[in-house]
Design a protein around this nucleic acid. Structure first.
Lengths: 231, 231
DNA sequence: CCCAGTAATAATGTCGACATTTTTGTGTAA
DNA sequence: TTACACAAAAATGTCGACATTATTACTGGG
């Protein structure tokens, strides 16, 4: 216990289940495990260097987040993918994030506007690196997500933000699976630099209707690419 | 294991964690445990007749649903309540359910309309019993929730329905805590029988704007009562 | 050759035990 | 009396072991 806790450079304020949760989630979202793949305990124990108890706790949480499924006495599997779920997730995500943006425009203050400009700036600065390594691509995606998160934070609703995050994660799984399959990186989705500038402008002008509409199409753009793929 | 599994009349297709999850959730939502109350393992083991493993799995799931909180090495507590969260939950719930209703009006078919009429009928039939026992009151609340669920099902989005359910549950916790505190039953909230009739009519007419508006005010009505209470 | 029934193998779900940490209780000194 | 240090008690988090259940392999009959 002390051994692996230290080797894993664990903050002592997290228990094993919490650590395993984030690793396991990352592995599922990144496509390390395939949809529907059986998650045998022996293998998981070996990979994450923990016993079954923390593993089952982590898997239980992923169960609620619908990233794994369970059948009694038959263990855990990675949540299967489907065209129907892909569509549901992307469309619902667009609707939810549109809701966030709409409320943010009503409620956002000066600090909100400032944070948007800051996030947009960081995003733009990292854009030139896009064609570079996978790591840079992931870094850009992180900034991209941060940009949208900051916008949504203006809605001032933790509940909405949490729902939004869950949908983002599930969508990112489909995106990652697609990227893995097609051997390209995030850059494919994000040729729309201009959209961000225009979005910022629209938000600062508090043009609710246009901003909501832009967000929806912005988030559904990747779906158009993904929807005809095989998962 | 076999013993308690049988005494609890357990369907063999559910493991202990699943059974404990529903009981524990029910106990939290019903207000059996107080907000912020410490959930000591010894007590939980005794109450639910299981070991720590299934308990921790169930609690892990409630953690994701934000019905409990955890601090490392200090165990689990019931999620605390707050005015801020009360407001966030009720307002977000209204927004989400309005979204469901809006989409349902766009997508709902004949079967959807029929199911609404059926649910409304059942609800109306059970209304006369309202002043009766606590059990009838809970039965009515169940039918009431079913009525709204059926309406929302027209949106044809499992993701949205799941989000909606989570918010309903959290809202119901606040409602139950309030009821417990004020020593009255659900009937207080539901003097609005006419609203249901009018809502059905509006839905069948596909008057989206009016239906969305009605749902919002319908769901926020209890909040007006709750918001000035002490939790 | 293929299928059914059965034995073996493997994997799951649960509990009890142990080490670690937190909390409680007690006594001493200022 | 209050504050602090230290000891005792309790509670948490984890693992290994065990019973139960599912899966695979094998054998014999059709």
């Amino acid at each position: 216990m002390t051994l692996s806790a230290l080797t894993a450079q664990a903050t002592r304020q997290d228990n094993f289940a919490t650590q395993v949760l984030s690793q396991l989630k990352q592995d599922i979202l990144s496509g390390f495990y395939n949809p529907g793949e059986k998650l045998r305990m022996a293998r998981l124990k070996e990979r994450y260097n923990v016993g079954v108890s923390p593993l089952r706790e982590a898997l239980s949480q992923l169960l609620v987040e619908q990233l794994v499924v369970v059948e009694n006495q038959r263990g855990f599997k990675v949540h299967p993918t489907s065209q129907a779920e892909l569509q549901d997730i992307y469309q619902t995500r667009a609707a939810i994030e549109a809701l966030c943006v709409g409320q943010a425009i009503d409620l956002g203050d000066d600090a909100w506007e400032a944070s948007i400009l800051a996030a947009a700036h960081q995003l733009k600065k990292s854009a030139p690196l896009l064609d570079d390594t996978l790591q840079n691509s992931q870094q850009w995606e992180k900034l991209h997500h941060n940009f949208h998160t900051v916008i949504c934070l203006g809605c001032q609703s933790p509940a909405l933000m949490q729902v939004r995050l869950g949908l983002y994660e599930k969508a990112s799984r489909y995106r990652n699976l697609w990227l893995k399959q097609h051997m390209v990186d995030n850059a494919v989705f994000d040729a729309n630099f201009k959209e961000h500038d225009e979005l910022v402008e629209t938000l600062l002008k508090r043009d609710k209707e246009k901003a909501v509409s832009m967000i929806k199409s912005h988030l559904l753009a990747p779906y158009v690419l993904l929807k005809d793929s095989q998962f």
